[in-house]
Design a protein around this nucleic acid. Structure first.
Length: 775
DNA sequence: CACCCATCACATATT
DNA sequence: GTGATGGGTG
């Protein structure tokens, strides 16, 4: 481990700076430090705010917006603020609204790149041969289109997966290359068919009246370039431009910004090169490094005072990131008190790691570690990839720790939600072939591969959409038997729904329910007896609820493609399980960072792809992770990890070696990884030795857990009377594992033989009689 | 044509 | 372990 003395943040303690700052000044400047204030008050001309983690950049940004308005420099409607995620946009909206006076009806243009471009493109759709009600395709839809095209080109999709084509086209779009100007260097891409398929794909999107994420930006760039008057109009409209997370912008977004800002150059970019973790998505750190060249008279402000993390946490993060070569360089400091050291834990395997963290969480909740008590909502587990989450989920389910998952399958990506949305889409536009494809045989209508192929052939033969093709086929008796009757019914229903969708008197939520009902889609899930079916029905209900928040189906559809965030990020009741990527911008009093092993973190894939650059990006990811912690930060690794259903030996992450000794404390007990150095013992050969080392049952944490468990109240609202009111052989339902039969009762736990999941020991509070299962 | 079962590749992160 | 796919059967 390194022990360079260069990362001590305590040496620079400013006395009373904040107090001085607070003197005088208008309300929106209160509480800002000198640097923040400078960034806020320099309204005219280009400004680059280099804002380290936890240095209050959101405050600075929102104050800046307030300042521009209060100074009368511009009206809210003439300010454009671009963020990277919907979550960030929402937060800024809230804070701007709070700054503003009570009448705050007028808001700045505030949203993600895609959001803003969506709004603009709806107004000018005809300039790129689209209608104003174009649909936004998600990844799944895109791949489906590409798959059809690749199939038509007789490409062996076993050898050339469509995912790959998707990734290639995406990366081209990130660089703002249209199919006309993809450079020759790329001509071998995707078996030399990449560029041609890109062209076909774009043509197909126009036919479908659809765009993908990249197109939202690209179309606006080409409109700005071709139509001076339109560009001029928006340059006048957006007098002041603010960009959050500038280090995450790709070339296309960069060009878009420059087009808008080059007139007045009133652009303020906020970013942190050390938190650039989206290189794989086309983000160019170069954008931020180049800012001063792009705008020679730019004012550069550094925000370096950290208000979030304790000094040991901050030092550890600083030390780690100092290993990166390509960075602008910042020195974060804090005047927060002593605080806890960063803890490092070593475990036998990944299950052990999950168990240990579970125990720690229970201790933290009860304050048995000597600190204050922490509520579950104050605790987060940050993982490198989503597959790490399962071990924690299973652990938390059996021990009854409430948790939420962020960054798993998103609401709008769930199968049932996408199916339902396809029904909405086809109702709005019968031309939506993708939607028709999706729903034509869901629920089963006896229209299988053969029938669907006939419809497709009829469509391309007649040059019409699938719905029309199906009509033609029906007239010609091209489909027979039960399938024909069902198809007739479906087509009639579609016609009716389409009429209702246009009728302003029909409530769109009623129509949505009607569609799910009449189509038999809801019934399909009601009939399904798999453990996930109730949850899916619940999701459909939730979808209808969300629908109610919009004016009409059309309005909902316009937003749905862009709202991919999980909403319930700040659930105070639950431990958060989240990926490092989606944790950026968040903070938690207690943070666990499991899985610091070579190959997993840093990820082998990232390193293979980008070499040293990849390593540096992974290190930035580690930096982001550590700096999410306010009070307590715990890193851990396992010497044995389950993946692909089998376990393999692992070695600790190189990042562990880079941690500064003086800020680290070893958290695992002697006998396992606790040789004082924090480095793991050499892996023992004999099985007995391995078993001995894994004996965490003797650990204080485990004993505490045993004691605590008896006094703990159930943490989720469940039927109290039901506790252990079961008998052997009784049939029960479990939210996660589905149906099963009780084989053993053991205190507050039961062993259940689940139909799907097999034998599991679960807390009795979490199983129900089959008919009492909460939906 | 639907259903069931075996087989296979497979997972870095996301607007 | 999971989800997608393909072949065989009813």
């Amino acid at each position: 481990m390194s022990s360079e003395g260069s990362c001590n943040p305590l040496k620079k303690i400013p006395l009373g700076v904040r107090a001085m700052d607070a003197i005088a000044g208008t309300s929106h400047l209160d509480g800002l430090n000198t640097a923040q204030r400078e960034a806020v008050q320099t309204i005219e001309g280009p400004v680059l705010m280099l804002a380290g983690a936890g240095t209050g950049k959101t405050s600075a940004l929102t104050s800046r917006i307030a300042h521009i308005i209060n100074e009368g420099a511009a009206k809210p409607g003439n300010i454009l603020a671009v963020t990277f995620t919907n979550k960030a946009a929402r937060e800024m909206k809230d804070r701007v609204a709070r700054h503003g006076n009570a009448d705050g009806a007028a808001m700045p243009w505030l949203g993600t790149f895609h959001n803003i471009c969506n709004k603009l493109l709806r107004r000018h759709a005809e300039l790129v041969d689209l209608k104003t009600n174009f649909t936004i395709l998600d990844r799944d839809d895109q791949l489906r289109v590409m798959d059809q095209l690749a199939a038509a080109s007789e490409i062996d999709r076993k050898k050339w997966p469509v995912r790959q084509l998707g990734a290639i086209i995406d990366s081209w779009k990130n660089r703002a290359w249209t199919h006309e100007n993809v450079p020759q260097s790329q001509k071998l891409a995707y078996n030399s068919k990449g560029i041609e398929l890109y062209r076909q794909y774009e043509d197909r999107l126009v036919e479908l009246n659809a765009v993908d994420f990249g197109n939202l930006i690209l179309h606006m760039i080409s409109i700005f370039r071709k139509h001076d008057d339109i560009l001029e109009k928006y340059r006048r409209r957006f007098q002041y431009i603010l960009v959050d997370e500038y280090q995450d912008t790709n070339v296309a977004q960069y060009l878009w910004l420059r087009l808008l800002a080059d007139g007045h150059k009133n652009i303020c970019c906020v970013g942190d090169d050390d938190q650039s973790i989206y290189g794989w998505r086309g983000a160019e750190v170069e954008n931020i490094l180049r800012f001063e060249k792009d705008y020679p008279n730019a004012k550069v402000v550094r925000l370096e005072q950290n208000y979030r993390s304790g000094p040991h946490i901050l030092s550890t993060a600083s030390c780690l990131i100092a290993k990166n070569k390509r960075r602008l360089g910042k020195e974060l400091w804090t005047d927060l008190g002593e605080g806890e050291k960063v803890r490092l834990a070593c475990h036998f395997n990944s299950d052990e790691e999950a168990r240990w963290i579970g125990e720690e969480i229970e201790s933290l909740q009860h304050g048995t570690r000597g600190q204050r008590r922490y509520s579950p909502g104050e605790i987060a587990i940050l993982v490198r990839n989503t597959s790490q989450m399962r071990a924690f989920e299973e652990r938390f389910i059996t021990t009854g720790i409430p948790y939420i998952v962020v960054g798993g399958p998103r609401f709008y990506e769930r199968m049932e939600i996408r199916d339902a949305i396809a029904y909405f889409r086809i109702a709005i536009s019968p031309l939506d072939d993708l939607a028709f494809d999706r729903i034509v045989n869901k629920p089963k209508r006896g229209l299988g591969n053969v029938a669907q192929r006939k419809i497709h052939d009829a469509a391309s033969g007649n040059g019409v959409c699938l719905v029309d093709a199906a009509e033609i086929l029906m007239e010609q008796n091209g489909i027979r038997g039960a399938g024909a009757r069902e198809l007739r019914l479906l087509l009639d229903q579609l016609a009716i729904w389409n009429r209702l969708a246009r009728d302003p008197k029909t409530s769109h939520t009623d129509l949505a329910m009607k569609m799910l009902d009449e189509s038999g889609y809801s019934a399909m899930w009601q009939k399904t007896r798999t453990p996930d079916a109730p949850g899916r029905l619940e999701n459909l209900k939730e979808l209808i609820n969300v629908l109610g928040e919009f004016e009409n189906l059309q309005g909902f559809m316009e937003h749905v493609g862009l709202i991919m965030d999980n909403d319930s990020v700040d659930d105070v009741e639950k431990v958060t399980l989240i990926t490092l990527h989606s944790a950026k911008g968040l903070e938690y009093p207690v943070v666990f960072l499991p899985g610091w092993e070579e190959g997993l973190f840093p990820s082998k894939l990232a390193m293979d792809e980008k070499g040293e650059l990849g390593e540096e990006e992974e290190r930035r990811l580690a930096y982001v992770g550590i700096t999410r912690a306010m009070e307590l930060c715990t890193l851990s690794f396992a010497q044995n990890r389950w993946m692909y259903g089998s376990s393999s030996d692992t070695i600790p992450s190189r990042f562990i070696d880079e941690l500064p000794d003086e800020h680290i404390e070893i958290a695992t007990d002697s006998g396992y990884g606790g040789n004082g150095s924090g480095r793991p013992e050499p892996f023992p050969d004999s099985l007995e030795e391995r078993a001995a080392r894994a004996d965490v049952y003797k650990s204080p944490g485990w004993r505490r857990l045993q004691q605590n468990r008896n006094v703990r109240k159930p943490q989720l609202p469940v039927m109290e009377a039901e506790i252990c009111d079961y008998s052997i052989g009784e049939r029960v339902f479990h939210m996660k594992f589905g149906y099963g039969r009780i084989v053993e009762i053991d205190g507050d736990k039961v062993v259940v033989d689940f139909d799907k999941a097999g034998l599991k020991r679960v807390v009795a509070n979490y199983v129900f009689p089959p008919d009492a299962a909460p939906l």
